[in-house]
């Protein structure tokens, strides 16, 4: 008998990442379209405004910050990660050397890389929107801060990554063994119930007050837990062709 092929999990994951990063690229183009549509819809309203009246001066600021762009990227990451776990994508994995574990690890890497690119896309949309406004709207700009601080960059990355991880976990839960499916359904219903009856019980104020860096560390830790759980579930999952 010919000698058997012995490829390590790492090699397979690397190969899968190499191909997936190219084949899943349309999700990034949908982020650009999404950002552009929303950028256009909320073209001149900015993310917020503030007004002051002093000494017969009525001053109004329209503030352009990253809130909307981040909000969109986060939703995008969540939905994209769920899409990565859908049937069509899972079936494609079966046509090459893979296991559910290797595919999920590869998806994890893809989500992280795409989250990083998403931050750049988000920043690009922000600056392009400002450029369009500066040409079309005859109001001067005040530049409070133009440059993403490294910690802010890290925070944006980590929160996008976090929601991608949650999406991946969510998608994997519903493809996993029956007890995990039921557990997830129960958890989702419980969370919705809590949200409806007492929305104030979820208080993120403490988290927001943390410095950017600490916040990123928190997000990344939760993301790491979600990724690990997703991989663990994938390792237990059968191939479901439905």
């Amino acid at each position: 008998m010919h000698s058997l092929t012995n490829l390590s999990l790492k090699t397979i994951v690397k190969k899968q990442v190499k191909w997936k990063i190219k084949l899943y690229i349309s999700s990034l183009s949908s982020l650009i379209i999404l950002q552009s549509i929303f950028g256009f819809l909320f073209f001149s309203s900015g993310s917020g405004s503030s007004g002051y009246g002093q000494q017969n001066l009525d001053l109004n600021f329209t503030i352009y910050s990253l809130d909307m762009h981040l909000f969109l990227s986060v939703f995008w990451a969540f939905i994209s990660a769920i899409i990565f776990t859908t049937r069509a994508y899972r079936m494609d994995d079966l046509s090459v050397i893979s296991s559910r574990t290797s595919s999920t690890i590869a998806n994890t890497v893809i989500i992280m890389i795409y989250s990083l690119i998403a931050v750049f896309i988000m920043a690009s949309t922000f600056y392009l929107q400002l450029l369009a406004i500066s040409f079309l709207k005859n109001e001067p700009f005040i530049i409070d801060n133009l440059i993403f601080s490294p910690t802010l960059f890290m925070m944006c990355f980590s929160i996008i990554c976090l929601f991608g991880a949650i999406g991946l976990l969510f998608g994997n839960c519903f493809k996993g063994p029956v007890f995990i499916k039921s557990l997830t359904s129960f958890f989702v219903m419980f969370a919705v119930f809590i949200l409806i009856i007492s929305p104030d019980s979820i208080n993120l104020k403490g988290l927001i007050m943390l410095p950017n860096f600490m916040m990123s560390v928190c997000y990344l830790s939760v993301a790491a837990i979600s990724f690990s759980l997703a991989i663990w579930i994938a390792n237990k999952s059968e191939v479901s062709r439905t």
């Binding site: 490829l7 999990l9 190219k22 893979s98």
Partner: peptide
């Protein structure tokens, strides 16, 4: 879910599918 057996086994059936971005040539390259 074993990567060693996966590397030495291939299952061909009518549900085998490939990304619709790939041409047959690219599938062979993959």
């Amino acid at each position: 879910n074993n990567i060693f057996t996966a590397a030495n086994t291939i299952l061909i059936d009518d549900r085998l599918s490939f990304s619709d971005y790939l041409t047959l040539e690219e599938i062979l390259t993959m």
